[in-house]
Amino acid sequence: MSAPTGITWATLTKDVRLEWRSKDAINSMLFFALLVVVVFSFSFDPEAEESRQIAGGLVWVAFLFAAVVALNQTWARELRNQVLDAYRVSPAPANSLFVAKALGNFIFVSVLEALMTPLFIVFYKLRVLGPAWQLIPVAILGTWAIVVNGTFFAAMSLRTRSREIMLPLLLFPITIPALLSMVEATTTILVGDPSTSAKFWIVLLATYDVVFTTGCLALFGTVLHAE
């Protein structure tokens, strides 16, 4: 195992182990997503047939809000005992740390999605009328889009005053095309109208992922060492 992947693996397993023992992020995310689901149900009639049209948006907005809760905690953990400063002066490549953090967040948000989706199906009586398998690439690409940018912007907002509020302010405008793609793809698949296809949105989402993963990897070192 080469050194950068070794560092990534070590950081990733450390984060997952910490999360497994404390369950801080996952518990707060789950409860937050649950609250969003319940609050949304008061703003319209969840039993109505039209609700199917907005269900895709609902699911992803709930996941996005919940993901912000976890993303905010990503780097805060490393501030205690100056772990991040230690990392900064060590010769370890910055991108290994970034990839580890992004993968860790990806795992946490995926677990949240796996746990919340059945609840959504029960509460909003969702049925997939289109090709259900397409939901898998949408979920993977969409989660990665939120997580890769979120991890980057969380590192950025770490250096600001009132950092908890900075993350959504930076993340939401940039994520709009990804969010639109996820929502449209999910709605298309749920509604199952044979005249439309989710393919365009999946391709756009993949493009977004490639562009911003490259951007994050290119700029993370600069942001981490910004002084």
Binding site: N149, M156, P173, I174, I176, P177, F212, L219, T222
Partner: peptide, 20 residues
């Protein structure tokens, strides 16, 4: 540095926003 990084991200986002 942070602002410059965000500006680059914003510019990368513009074509994607437009197409979507």
């Amino acid at each position: 540095v942070l602002a410059a990084a965000l500006a680059v991200f914003g510019a990368l986002d513009v074509p994607l926003v437009y197409f979507s």
